[in-house]
Structure formats: structure tokens, C-alpha cells
């Protein structure tokens, strides 16, 4: 079943708490995407969000208020980045009995932490410890940035220099300043290390935001969009959890997902690299040559509304096709510590 991204909408993401709830962030995005497609009902709806970001169970329940789920809708939710919700919707469309799907994700990383969105994401850093093996890793209190730094060290020992990381951060921040939806972050300065070898600009910023995508199949996609971004391949893979059981300098799961999704010959790639060195690992794993443009949006280093960040990569990759800026693009999403899980979506005009 030929399936395409036909519309994409996102919030103008903020680097601090703007005082809106998650559902208040999401509602205008849903309104916008309904207006853009002229659709108010969808064959299937799927979302991605995280209870622990809100500090309460069932954060997706109130989000349903933004959708207008009446009469009742066919709907599901993953406690994962909304890119995986998009995958679930894509699979559902392959059944052939429906022709549209709405996908959305939202997150406020400003909320975790004593007193809220404090310097350098310390709330989120500590929160992500809860995602680790509860017997051997979580009790150590090892945080997200520390784990990423272990992986960064492995990348540096493979022949890269710290200046390579800085170059990724500089290019991402510059692109972000040109993207009205991303944050305005300054040129990387001479900030001290967060956890060596990662400096603050190598790490994702605190971000609140939401995003939505509409998928459609066949003729319906052509009706709804002048240049649909057809999904030519989509796949996701996970690898072993323990960083001690992996070669951290590479990503076997990203390589496998890329191979299955057919990640060749793309002009632009939007990579869900939350840390500078992750981009280097992903370029390698996906076999992206030097002439592939990486993250013209600025990527996760310029705006990281967690649980929507991966979906936004697919939305941005589709937008280049919609606007005729590229014929073949790639959107990537990641989850888990040190790029444990990776999703690749290849789009084409």
C-alpha cells in the first residue's frame, strides 16, 4: 500500500516553560493540521508521549481532548517517541481498509527537576536514569549525559577529534537559528565540559513542543497534497541494552534499520542525534556520504521536544519533498541509552 506523509505541523518550540500544559501545546498543532488537510476525521490515530515527563500516569488521556475524539475514534498510543506511533499508523494503513491516519507527539522537558527547567537539563538527565536496567545501572545514578559521554569517548578513540563534535554543534545551532520552529542558540563558545568529552553545546537543549503528521495512501494522498512524500521504506531495530555488551563506537541497530529501509541515494537526512557524536555514528551506520545534507532544520541539538523530536525529523524530511527541495530524503528517530533503538524512514517525491 503506497503511503505518504501529506501534512506536517509543529509548535514554535520554547527553551523554557511557557505556562501551557501538554494538551494546550498540542491543540493548535492539531487544529493547524486539520485545516491544512481539510480533514476532521481520520481512519486511525496514534500518539507518542511519556508519563514520566509530566510526573503523572496517563498523560495521553487528556491529550485526546485536543483531537475531537467524537464520535469515538480508532486510536492507540505508544510510550515511545511519536516516530514509533507513525510506524504503527503506517502498518495499520497497510491493511488497506482505511486511507488516512493522524500521528502526534508532545513533551515538555522543562518540567522534570527541582524548581523546573534548570540549567543544562539536569532534571531530564537524572530522569533518564529510570530507563536503565533497574538492577545494575539505575541504582548507580548514572545519567543520560554521562552515558552519552561514554559513547562519545568511544567515538573519539575511533579517530575523531573533539573539534568534529564542535563542528556538528556549530552547524546544528546555525541551522536552528534559521528555522522559525527551533530555538535560537548562540555559536558554541568556550564553555567547560558537562561530562568530558561533551560540552554543553554537544547536548540537547531543554525544549517544550508538539508535532503532528497526517499519512494517506494512494489517490487519497494525491488529493490531499500536491507533492506527497511517499514512504519508500520504513524500519526500526533495537540492540542489546547494556553498554558493556555493545561496541559503543558504532550502531548496529541503526545500520540494520537503514539497510531494511533502503537508506541509499538520499539528498537530505534528518537525524535524531541528541548529542553531537551521535550524528557521526549515525552517518557511518546509515552510509551517508559527504554530499548528503544533514539536519537543515538544526536537528535535536537545536530543539528537543522529547517524544516529538523523532517525529519532527520525519516531518522535516517530508517537508523538503513537499516543497520540491529534494526528491529523496531520510528521517531518523532514536530511543534508549546510547542509540539503543533506531528507526529509519525513506521518503520520495
Amino acid at each position: 500500500m503506497n503511503t505518504a506523509v501529506v501534512a506536517f505541523a509543529q509548535t514554535e518550540h520554547t527553551g523554557e516553560d511557557s505556562g501551557l500544559t501538554e494538551v494546550e501545546l498540542l491543540a493548535p498543532v492539531i487544529t493547524a493540521i486539520k485545516e491544512r488537510t481539510g480533514l476532521s476525521r481520520f481512519g486511525f490515530t496514534c500518539s507518542g508521549s511519556l508519563d514520566y515527563l509530566a510526573g503523572a500516569p496517563f498523560s495521553f488521556v487528556s491529550a485526546l481532548d485536543a483531537v475531537g475524539a467524537w464520535p469515538p475514534i480508532s486510536e492507540s498510543h505508544v510510550e515511545m517517541d511519536a516516530a514509533w506511533a507513525l510506524y504503527e499508523a503506517w502498518v495499520r494503513l497497510q491493511h488497506g481498509d482505511i486511507d488516512t491516519a493522524l500521528v502526534y507527539g508532545f513533551g515538555k522537558t522543562s518540567q522534570p527537576g527541582r524548581g523546573g527547567g534548570v540549567r543544562h537539563n539536569t532534571g531530564l538527565r537524572a530522569l533518564m536514569t529510570l530507563q536503565l536496567d533497574p538492577y545494575y545501572l539505575a541504582p548507580l545514578g548514572v545519567d543520560q549525559v554521562s552515558l552519552a559521554a561514554l559513547q562519545a569517548r568511544a567515538v573519539l578513540e575511533g579517530g575523531h577529534k573533539e573539534d568534529d563534535l564542535r563542528a556538528v554543534a556549530a552547524r546544528s545551532r546555525e541551522a536552528g537559528r534559521g528555522n522559525p520552529y527551533a530555538l535560537d542558540l548562540p555559536e558554541p563558545g568556550d564553555e567547560d565540559y558537562e561530562v568530558v568529552p561533551l560540552r554543553p553545546y554537544d547536548c540537547p537543549p531543554v525544549t517544550d513542543g508538539a508535532a503532528a503528521i497526517v499519512l494517506a495512501t494512494g489517490d487519497r494522498a494525491r488529493e490531499l497534497c500536491e507533492t506527497p512524500a511517499w514512504i519508500r521504506g520504513i524500519d526500526h531495530r533495537i540492540e542489546a541494552h547494556s553498554p558493556g555488551a555493545r561496541d559503543l563506537s558504532r550502531s548496529e541497530s541503526a545500520a540494520l534499520a537503514g539497510e531494511k529501509a533502503g537508506a541509499r541515494g538520499v539528498e537530505i537526512a534528518e537525524l535524531h542525534a541528541q548529542f553531537s557524536h551521535e550524528e557521526l555514528i549515525l552517518r557511518d551506520a546509515l552510509g551517508l556520504s559527504d554530499d548528503v545534507r544533514i539536519n537543515p532544520s538544526g536537528g535535536a541539538l537545536a530543539a528537543n521536544p522529547m517524544m516529538a523530536t523523532g517525529l519532527i525529523r520525519i516531518g522535516e524530511a517530508a517537508s523538503y519533498v513537499h516543497r520540491g527541495q529534494a526528491r529523496r530524503t531520510l528521517g531518523h528517530a532514536s530511543s534508549g541509552p546510547c542509540l539503543q533503538q533506531n528507526l529509519v524512514c525513506v521518503l520520495e517525491a
Binding site: 511519556l50 514520566y52 510510550e79 515511545m80 530522569l127 533518564m128 529510570l130 530507563q131 536503565l132 536496567d133 533497574p134 539505575a138 533495537i238 540492540e239 542489546a240 541494552h241 547494556s242 555488551a245 530511543s335 534508549g336 541509552p337 539503543q340 533503538q341
Partner: peptide, 11 residues
């Protein structure tokens, strides 16, 4: 208290 446990349970 194990967040997104698919990561830990993959193996």
C-alpha cells in the same frame, strides 16, 4: 519505576 522498559528488556 522502570521508564520505557523496552530498552532494558530487549535482550
Amino acid at each position: 519505576g522502570v521508564m520505557m522498559p523496552e530498552a532494558y528488556l530487549a535482550d
